[in-house]
Design a binder for these strands. Structure first.
Lengths: 213, 213
DNA sequence: CCTACCGATCGGTAGG
DNA sequence: CCTACCGATCGGTAGG
């Protein structure tokens, strides 16, 4: 096989090809931290938390194996940071589309569309990680995420209750919310931006399914 | 601390306390295999595939660390067996409740109720493992499971199409199926048999949400 | 942020 | 199905 010729048989640890070193004033740690977060979100989503090593994350951003621990206390702190970032950005997006004066049906449409944007738009890895890897959080971390989730869900409650009161939603508002979140969140398993159905199509389908318009 | 007195400081590997040995004629390997499968399903569901070691599974059924490999070729073959068993039993349950002559709306109710039974009744660990751990299958294994899934879903297609044609389902039948499966499957994350809502309540809520009855 | 390393754990196997 | 073991990998750390 000529392995000895094809590639050197001694493999000293290679310096990963990072971006050129910056001087002390130039480097901003926030950026590096953010890079690690993005790479971690991507890998946690694709391979799961337990299926991703901190070495995988380090090499995805051109660092050596121990270096992520300079930025994050532990692997699980990194997981928490991914989820927290995902929730903060989802809450912010949601608050931007809310129009409290609108009809409940229009508000629901906006909430659904914003939810799909969170799941499938840029930064799309963060929320799926939260949806599928909470098991790997500590109890304290889980409580922190749960609080953000309650904040997110709070916007949906009055809308669904109004729709139930007017008969447009023909289901208990609380169970309906759980079922609706399931329907939307599950799209992570099948939605493909390259296929025929767009996010607008899927939003239409969801609105039709839930309240018939 | 008197550790030397409290417990022997040398810990030779202890024989796990299995059931008493049976003679050659008595032992039936199918039973042991089934026990391993159940324990694996439970652990894979609680801790994930990557978070469960084959040693965890072995000790859950009172075996030594290498022994599961006497029954299963590899850890991933064990995962596949869990999923296959889950799908076969789901397909069988579903075929038992089907009544092709019924009204589409009644058929949908039966499909939904049977789906909830599969997710939350006895043997409830198998399908959630399939829903959440497919990533850890090989491509070939994934294809095998996908075939069973298509078989399962086939029963839903004509029912949903009939409901869409009659206007009872106000959504594209294909997207509706994906959204509905999501709504139902997500219940794995929140349904608790010890809480107020029963599976009948949740079935009613789903029927109301999707087709208003 | 790199270097060099540690103890623990893992999937899997040969041989009985 | 147990015994005894292997090579690989993992999260994390001290010291610079």
């Amino acid at each position: 096989m000529c392995a000895a010729l094809a590639s050197p048989s001694i493999d000293p640890p290679k310096r990963p090809r990072g971006r050129p070193r910056k001087t002390l004033d130039e480097r901003d740690e926030g950026n590096r931290r953010q890079e690690i977060l993005k790479a971690a979100a991507r890998l946690f989503r694709r391979r799961g938390f337990d299926g991703t090593s901190t070495r995988d994350i380090a090499s995805a951003v051109g660092m050596h194996s121990g270096s992520p621990f300079y930025h994050f206390e532990s692997k699980s702190a990194l997981l928490y940071a991914v989820m927290e970032e995902g929730m903060r950005s989802a809450i912010e997006r949601q608050s931007r589309v809310l129009r409290p004066g609108d009809e409940p049906a229009d508000q629901l449409r906006r909430l659904i569309r914003s939810h799909f944007d969170t799941l499938h738009g840029p930064g799309r890895d963060f929320i799926p990680v939260m949806l599928y890897e909470s098991r790997s959080l500590t109890a304290r971390q889980r409580a922190g995420i749960a609080k953000l989730q309650r904040e997110y869900e709070a916007a949906w409650v009055p809308v669904l209750e109004a729709l139930a009161a007017s008969g447009q939603l023909r289901s208990d508002a609380h169970l309906a919310r759980l079922l609706i979140f399931g329907a939307l969140n599950w799209s992570v398993q099948w939605f493909d931006a390259k296929k025929r159905a767009s996010l607008d199509d899927v939003t239409d389908a969801a609105m039709g399914l839930f309240i018939g318009r």
